[in-house]
């Protein structure tokens, strides 16, 4: 269930490795040419203007690589958008400059989101004023909060711990302070907290 993060990271690694490889090849070739064909060693340039076969090859191969990257990126995106049916739904409201979380029994908390371990959590997001964006880097999720509109995101709360929540859509003077804390606790701790007045 906690595979969404892994898929995204795999996509990262896949694209970064391919890119690094190509970057090194391009740069090395360029530097090699500059040294090998420097004017002092190679005074007579050839007159090569084009070669359609090579052009074709370096059009087709990058296209295939790019489409591969697109596919793996899209697959990981689907993972981020497909909410498991048994997810706990929590309403999130962004406002200048705080996050308010509302739990299934209508209990509310500000700036601290408490969820039980081992459950998928669906966050229904909206905003009271300007645009905000809920960002939990540890779970690779981010979604804008818009007034009069509902958006959602989800994550699988697999490990107990504290994780930072940021606002990543610029929202004014307090933007950088609009942070929060995601606390993943044990199931019993969660229900105890939830039912406390």
């Amino acid at each position: 269930m906690g595979n969404a993060v892994k898929y995204v990271d795999d996509a990262f690694i896949y694209i970064i490795v391919f890119s690094l490889f190509l970057l090194v090849v391009i740069t090395a070739t360029m530097v090699y040419f500059v040294i090998k064909y420097r004017a002092s060693k190679h005074p007579e340039p050839s007159d090569i203007r084009t070669n359609w076969k090579i052009e074709l090859i370096w059009t087709v191969i990058p296209t295939i690589i790019a489409l591969g990257m697109f596919y793996i990126g899209w697959q990981s995106y689907i993972g981020l958008r497909t909410v498991p049916p048994d997810a706990i739904e929590i309403d999130v409201t962004g406002m200048q400059y705080a996050w308010v979380f509302r739990y299934p029994n209508n209990k509310e908390s500000e700036s601290v989101l408490i969820v039980p371990q081992g459950k998928p959590i669906k966050l229904n997001i909206t905003s009271l004023d300007v645009l905000h964006s809920l960002f939990i880097p540890a779970f690779r999720i981010k979604m804008d909060a818009i007034k009069n509109m509902k958006t959602y995101t989800w994550f699988y709360a697999d490990k107990i711990g504290n994780y930072t929540i940021f606002c990543t859509e610029y929202c004014g003077v307090g933007h950088a302070d609009m942070t929060g804390m995601l606390r993943i606790v044990t199931e019993s701790e969660y229900s105890e907290w939830l039912n406390k007045k």
Partner: peptide
């Protein structure tokens, strides 16, 4: 990396 939909979500903004 940013064009890829999944990774984009993480690094956007």
């Amino acid at each position: 990396i940013q064009g890829a939909a999944g990774p984009n979500v993480h690094i956007h903004d």
